[in-house]
Design a protein around this nucleic acid. Structure first.
Lengths: 333, 333
DNA sequence: CCCGGGATTTCCATCGTTATACGCGGTCCG
DNA sequence: CGGACCGCGTATAACGATGGAAATCCCGGG
């Protein structure tokens, strides 16, 4: 069921059928109708693989995220799928687990040439890994990590957002604000949010107490719970917690609840990402809300705009954010 | 940078390079080494698009899920991506929003011929929609909906699972067990879990009270919250809730909490899916836990096994499940 | 009546890879 | 010593679609 079959059936040449399929201008109405009838009759559908081979484009962009299980990334993926669909593009999904080796694999194009572009949210990837990229498909980076590389990068202003979050806690009179979610072993991820945390404390004339920075292995509920338990077990009792993300925050809240500490009376909690989970926890979660739809749209547009080989300057695009205040800081209304 | 370039560089024919790349048996060591050196030197990577055109396979399976935002589907997607990777397959992701039109679109192969197979989790799709499928790529169905169609179908025994869940509630002495999450307007989804609910009540000699069945528009937190609020506002005060899924259950718990009802003392709650969220809510959630890894593995293997056009009988594959009891029914340990 | 010229349609090469058929030495056997 | 056979490589034709050149058609004008 190829162009050839249709051509045979309609008694015309292959190219004429192709012209009809592609809406070429110079085709008579009569001819168009005749070919179209054959197409309908045979139920012809173009073979995209062949088309892509010829055109050099596949209509597929890859999206590589650390963890689909994290609702922030799941929500973002959903938005990106929609944004890509608006441009007739499809999304090929991969998750890296935030592991450097997998991130390298993805960035080097292990799906060789079936994708037109890559949207990558790196965690442990280093700049040198990206420099080695032999692939020539355009890349767009998402997320907190910053690289001095000629790739577009889309993220919210993490420092500012973190600072606002901590300011909010300080404005409530809290003085011992813990930070949950610095990556254990590696100083790079979470760096910007930690900077924001420090900045807010500094400008309030407080000393940032490094013992209130709790490292985690990952960024899930369990990590947040473990980090919170670790802090409390070590005898530190912050009166507020700023978490790297909502999952960590919710995990921490669970532990606070178990230990009989009230939220926000004893400990106020702020998360990051504004995932839907935080709106339905027993104590709803105050959180930094990034403009996910904007990020998704920008990511897709940015990667597609580079397709033609357009070599415009690498851009750092800041998405908007806002602090959504809920019960975990304000208490029950 | 194609086979031709490598062939030129190595001074051999294109096919010989191809033979080396594909590990064909009859190539001398010397020749293999020589070609391999050229390959390495030029950094050649095969063009999968062309290979797929020739072979008729793309190495891609599509996965169509209702909502990535639902952690159950996100977790399942992650498992499927991994399971596919184990077979050197990649996953093309789509979400249907559970809307019939999008499900039809997906099932009719709008990604014409770039995919080798489709794993579909339908919500509103009807049997007739699938009968009209002109596409010849194999399909595997996931989830609760049942169709009398020649496609493999992988799901847990929803009736049995629901019955166990409700039995558990009854064993705790509860008598008024509400069901949250019957789809408003359509009787099909949730049918099996409702059957299980009824069966458990029947076998306990209780009368299923239809007023305790709460319909929802979707299956998110907000829907659960709305359904629970609706029941309470209508003056019904069940002493237990069995929810269609965990999100609905958590949304319901949030409302119970707002209304000052204690879980599980006043109202016990059981969910379905065992998503990680339920393990970190203030009151951890008792839930039916489907064997996601098995479902993912089976789905991938099933769809790939049909590739050769093997026309073996359509199978109904039951994945395992278990009831994980937590605080929302047993209370704080 | 024939020709120019624009509008249509056809022909051919091409994208990168793999399958098929064959050529070319050499070896083995009768 | 000649022919069948084997192992290794090469040439060539697909796969299905598209872009550009070439061929054809149709009309009015000279």
């Amino acid at each position: 069921m190829s162009l050839k079959d249709v051509a045979l059936h309609a008694g015309v040449s292959v190219k004429t059928v192709s012209n009809v399929v592609n809406d070429f201008p110079h085709v008579t109405e009569a001819m168009r109708a005749r070919v179209q009838r054959s197409i309908d009759e045979l139920g012809y559908r173009p073979n995209l693989t062949a088309r892509h081979l010829r055109k050099g484009r596949t209509g597929i962009v890859a999206l590589a995220l650390p963890e689909l299980g994290n609702p922030y990334f799941a929500e973002l993926a959903a938005e990106i799928v929609d944004a890509a669909a608006a441009h007739d593009y499809t999304v090929l999904l991969d998750h890296t687990g935030g592991r450097r080796e997998r991130e390298i694999l993805v960035s080097q194009g292990f799906r060789t040439r079936v994708i037109d572009g890559l949207i990558l949210s790196p965690i442990e990837l280093e700049a040198e890994d990206l420099e080695e990229r032999a692939e020539q498909v355009p890349v767009v980076l998402l997320g907190e990590r910053e690289y001095d590389l000629p790739y577009d990068h889309i993220a919210i202003d993490n420092v500012a957002a973190a600072r606002e979050a901590v300011r909010h806690l300080l404005s409530l009179g809290r003085r011992n604000v813990a930070f949950l979610g610095a990556r254990r072993g590696s100083s790079r991820p979470a760096r910007l949010r930690l900077l924001g945390w420090r900045a807010a404390l500094d400008e309030a004339g407080l000393v940032a107490d490094d013992r209130l920075i709790a490292a985690t292995d990952g960024w899930g509920y369990a990590d947040g719970a473990a980090a919170m338990a670790g802090l409390l077990d070590a005898g530190h009792r912050p009166d507020a917690v700023f978490a790297y993300n909502d999952l960590i925050a919710i995990g921490a809240m669970r532990v606070l609840h178990e230990r009989g500490l009230r939220i926000p009376e004893d400990v106020a909690v702020v998360g990051f990402d504004d995932v839907v989970e935080g709106r339905f926890s027993a104590v709803t979660l105050t959180s930094v809300s990034p403009d996910k739809a904007f990020i998704a749209r920008q990511a897709v547009e940015s990667v597609l705009s580079r397709l033609g080989g357009a070599r415009h300057e690498a851009r750092r695009i800041h998405a908007g954010h806002s602090l959504v205040c809920r019960e975990s800081t304000l208490g029950r209304a």
